[in-house]
């Protein structure tokens, strides 16, 4: 088969909603795009453990402590599912981690913001997981099989993350003055970064949308962002809180909420590495990896010794 035929066969399968699997032929760019996207998604889950992990030791009740620990553990698991999907594309986890540590690979910018109060746990659950879920549901229909299946598994587990976050805020919103203030303050700090999670505006794109054609992505940034805003405006009313956007207004013509302009300068600064916690997050991950080297080496050495002994015993 010529390259042209292979490409056509490949595109036909995508158009027919047939999943692409690990051993199938695929264009090099499709492989590379998926590697980048899946690994960055995995890195996001792992780095995401840090801002929330901060509060496990300080959780204000035993129930909240257990819930938070379970949630963060889930995120580790999600990272694992994604690294697992990524490795089917012919790259090792270690290579992707190396990319993360050297700055070649990125992770979701949202995790470069600090968690400054307990209410941040609720805000992250409600807004950050809420935004992530919208994207994740879309990705369950992505064209690459292992990625789609990982996303299905993740989505099944994700719903409790958002619910526990909102519920946590609900309790605060019905509490003392200090608790209510804590709740509003957290919402004020996490709202705009959550909107930034959906990426640059559609209008920033210039040429062909290969990712849409290959069904790696299935909805545009602005579509998802609008959906998110519409949903949150309704939900925040239940909290008796406000969203920090004076331009939020129902637009009967569009049948959507109009909202204010994102600070794109902040967006690009954080992507470039100048957010509040970029350095700390990466340092923490590098430290964990480096300090864990002797552990990984020891386990590998022991496994090798055992195998050798078993072989010589059998002989």
């Amino acid at each position: 088969m010529s390259i042209h035929d292979l490409e056509k066969h490949f595109q036909d399968r995508i158009d027919a909603e047939i999943k692409i699997e690990p051993l199938d032929w695929m264009p090099d760019a499709y492989r590379k795009t998926n590697i980048r996207q899946i690994s960055q998604h995995a890195h996001s889950e792992i780095v995401g453990m840090l801002p929330e992990g901060n509060w496990i030791s300080r959780a204000p009740s035993l129930k909240r402590k257990a819930i938070l620990l379970a949630k963060v553990q889930d995120e580790a698991g999600h990272g694992l599912y994604l690294y697992s999907a990524c490795e089917t594309l012919g790259i090792t986890r270690e290579e992707t981690i190396n990319d993360l540590h050297t700055g070649r690979a990125k992770y979701s910018s949202i995790f470069n913001y600090p968690t400054l109060s307990w209410a941040d746990m609720g805000a992250i659950g409600w807004l950050v997981d809420g935004a992530a879920i919208m994207n994740q549901v879309m990705l369950t229909r992505t064209s690459y099989g292992p990625y789609a299946r990982a996303m299905v598994r993740i989505c099944k587990e994700e719903s409790f993350h958002q619910r526990q976050g909102f519920e946590s805020l609900l309790v605060l919103s019905k509490g003392s003055d200090a608790q209510r203030a804590m709740c509003q303050d957290a919402i004020n700090r996490w709202w705009w970064p959550a909107l930034m999670m959906f990426g640059p505006r559609d209008s920033e794109s210039t040429n062909s949308d290969q990712s849409m054609k290959w069904k790696i992505k299935r909805k545009t940034n602005d579509e998802l962002r609008q959906q998110f805003v519409d949903m949150c405006v309704e939900q925040v009313k239940l909290l008796g809180m406000t969203l920090p956007d004076p331009d939020l207004k129902w637009n009967a013509e569009r049948n959507h909420y109009d909202f204010g302009t994102i600070d794109w300068n902040e967006f690009w600064q954080v992507v470039k590495g100048n957010g509040p916690c970029n350095r700390e997050r990466l340092e923490a991950r590098k430290k964990a990896w480096e300090e864990g080297t002797w552990v990984r080496e020891a386990a590998a050495a022991h496994a090798a010794k055992k195998q050798k002994r078993a072989a010589s015993n059998a002989a």
Partner: peptide
């Protein structure tokens, strides 16, 4: 030409793993 940026696909260099 992959110019559209989507959630998870953050602008950056091609990473094919090193």
């Amino acid at each position: 030409y992959i110019r559209r940026f989507f959630y998870g696909d953050i602008p950056g260099q091609e990473t094919g793993g090193s």
